[in-house]
Write a protein that binds this DNA or RNA. Structure first.
Length: 552
RNA sequence: GCGCCAGUAGCUCAAUAGGAUAGAGCGUUAGCCUCCGGAGCUAAAGGUUGUGGGUUCGAUUCCCGCCUGGCGCACCA
């Protein structure tokens, strides 16, 4: 049992034994004090009980301590401190044992059954297939990918999904833009539509098509040609987006196409369900959804006066489809420009009979583009978009992913293009990878010195300040993963990995691993192995590589 | 005008369900390699947590007002 779990259970027992007059068992909060001198775990329980019990916190703490039974192999000391905190100090035997448990768990270390196998879906990026993925998508891709990994590790059956808007006006425009480029290429100049897509990527594609197919599409009727070019442009863009994400190590379980919903007339299904429940009405020739009954600021149109389904209606159908595929929870990652959309989507989900909490939207704040400290307006027209591929090319996948995940998603972030390259030298990702490589090197060195590194060894020689610090840090890993999931805070995992690296570097500088003392050497090799395992597991969640050598 | 999000060291960011003395990196300054990798380590300087109130044993965290910035407020997608 992990020491945290042990203390929690012991406190629960003590609480019962103390026979306080309480309506229900209170929540037992356990936290790590900021200062080391205040112990390894601390609970403010006595303070929070002070009011309901109308008793001094320190008095409550005393009663709790009297009823607390602790195995000295787990906890060597307790104390009441400050206004009424109860602090716990871990005993060395359980820390020494923990090192071997981490090694034994291997790549499974960090897992928990918090999610109990619940099916959960994360939808992220879902960029329109009208251009290459840009740097904003790179943030969403990194965040969504890492979060999904953490959900899996925390015991959820989590899936990644990309929603492809392959129908509607913008695809028609995309086709028209490509068609115009193609005709121009054939010597019949046509203007790219005002609202169309002017990027160079379509020009390249048009040339490719012209070289391959010659002028035979030029003979088609205009609308026929438009349809054909829409299809060609779409498949090309999708393939390109997939390739970028692949390079970025983001692999989706499903690329869901909007057209499958339209082909199946999924919107009819929604309209029927909503009408049956009495949530729709007609007004001025349009069909409306009473979303205001579910907290939206006003009702929304589902079918326009022209009889067209709105994008909103199709989106409802998409989300209904998610539920029908068995997902108990659905998390969407949107840009800040879509936050106004949340209330109506949630309203629809509630109207369809799904629990309010089953639908969650996380807004990933924007990426501000800077060039030498100056803000750059990103617009497709001005050609100022930075493509994801360029980013990967410039700074590398590891650095890019780490950079995006290392900040909390609610914080807008600046991305200085000129700094990005320079930053690759100073990027914290190298710091953590260096720690991993260094440990690998120590293990190699030990072998060279004739010390075979065993699977397991006696660790009772571990106990100095730096060793203990490393072990305690390693023990936090499963909690960190759970917190990432519970609070949608992927940056915690990258922060944590940096802390592990720091504690290990510190240990390394104070003590040699390979020494004359054989049992001490073996014990420290175990510590090094455990640290390497935790780093590697953290890197796996982050989707970055775990180099055994930094100088190759 | 209404709504959502944010504001923490010179810069980029943290702060674990409201917890104890707000912490890291970069940059600045001063140290540390006869020793398993110096892409490392140790230390110093740097703060009225935008601002004014409130809630309580305790507030960067929760509530209200104000200031600044971003983004929304379509029968567009």
């Amino acid at each position: 049992m992990k020491p945290q779990e042990y203390v929690h259970a012991a406190l629960q027992k003590a609480l019962k034994k103390s026979e306080f007059q309480l309506p229900e068992l209170p929540y037992i909060s356990l936290e790590r004090p900021k200062q080391e001198e205040l112990g390894d775990l601390s609970t403010p329980l006595a303070m929070s009980l002070s009011k309901p019990l109308r008793m001094a916190p320190r008095k409550i703490a005393e009663i709790l301590l009297q009823n607390l039974e602790l195995d000295p192999d787990y906890v060597e000391k307790t104390e009441i401190a400050g206004p009424g905190f109860i602090n716990f100090y871990y005993a060395k035997p359980c820390l020494q044992k923990a090192v071997l448990e981490i090694i034994r768990d291997g790549e499974r270390y960090g897992r928990s059954d918090l999610g109990q196998g619940r099916k959960i879906q994360l939808e992220f990026v879902s960029a329109n297939p009208t251009g290459p993925l840009n740097i904003v998508s790179a943030r969403a891709a990194a965040v969504g990918d890492v979060l999904t990994s953490c959900y899996r590790t925390a015991g959820y059956d989590a899936r990644r999904e990309f929603y492809v808007n392959d129908a509607g006006r913008q695809i028609r425009l995309l086709g028209a833009s490509l068609s115009a480029r193609y005709m121009t290429e054939l010597g019949h100049p046509e203007e790219v539509p005002e609202e169309g897509y002017h990027g160079a990527y379509l020009l390249d594609l048009a040339r490719e098509i012209a070289a391959r197919d010659g002028d035979r599409h030029g003979k088609l009727a205009a609308d026929e040609r438009a349809a054909l070019f829409s299809q060609m442009a779409l498949e090309y863009m999708l393939q390109r987006q997939k390739a970028s994400l692949d390079k970025y190590r983001v692999v989706y379980d499903l690329w869901f196409r909007e057209s499958t919903l339209r082909d199946a007339n999924a919107q009819e299904h929604i309209l029927r369900k909503m009408a049956e429940a009495g949530f729709t009405y007609e007004h001025e020739g349009a069909l409306w959804f009473r979303s205001s009954e579910f907290g939206d600021e006003k009702d929304r149109v589902l079918i326009t006066q022209n009889g067209e389904p709105t994008y909103f209606l199709i989106d409802i159908a998409y989300h209904q489809d998610k539920y029908e595929r068995g997902f108990e929870k659905v998390i969407d990652f949107w840009g800040p420009d879509h936050h106004g959309y949340i209330d109506r989507m949630r309203a629809a989900i509630m109207a369809l009979g799904h629990p309010k909490e089953s639908f969650e939207v996380s807004i990933i704040q924007q990426v501000n583009l800077l060039r030498s400290g100056q803000t750059v307006k990103m617009s497709k027209r001005a050609g100022e978009i930075i493509e994801m591929d360029e980013l990967i090319e410039e700074v590398g996948v590891d650095a890019a992913r780490f950079y995006f995940v290392d900040r909390r998603i609610s914080q807008p972030m600046d991305f200085d293009i000129d700094l990005a390259k320079k930053q690759s030298d100073e990027n914290p990702v190298f710091y953590v990878q260096y720690a991993h490589a260094r440990i690998c090197n120590i293990l190699r060195y030990a072998e060279e010195q004739g010390v075979a590194v065993p699977e397991s060894a006696d660790t009772s020689a571990l106990g100095n300040a730096q060793e203990v610090q490393v072990i305690k840090k390693l023990l936090e890993f499963p909690d960190v993963v759970q917190r990432v999931v519970l609070n949608t805070e992927p940056h915690r995992i990258s922060n944590y990995v940096q802390e592990v690296a720091t504690t290990f570097h510190r240990f390394y500088h104070e003590h040699r691993v390979v020494t004359e003392d054989r049992s001490l050497t073996l014990a420290r090799l175990m510590l090094a192995k455990a640290a390497r395992q935790v780093l590697a597991n953290g890197f796996a969640l982050l989707g970055i590589s775990a180099p055994e050598n930094m100088y190759l």
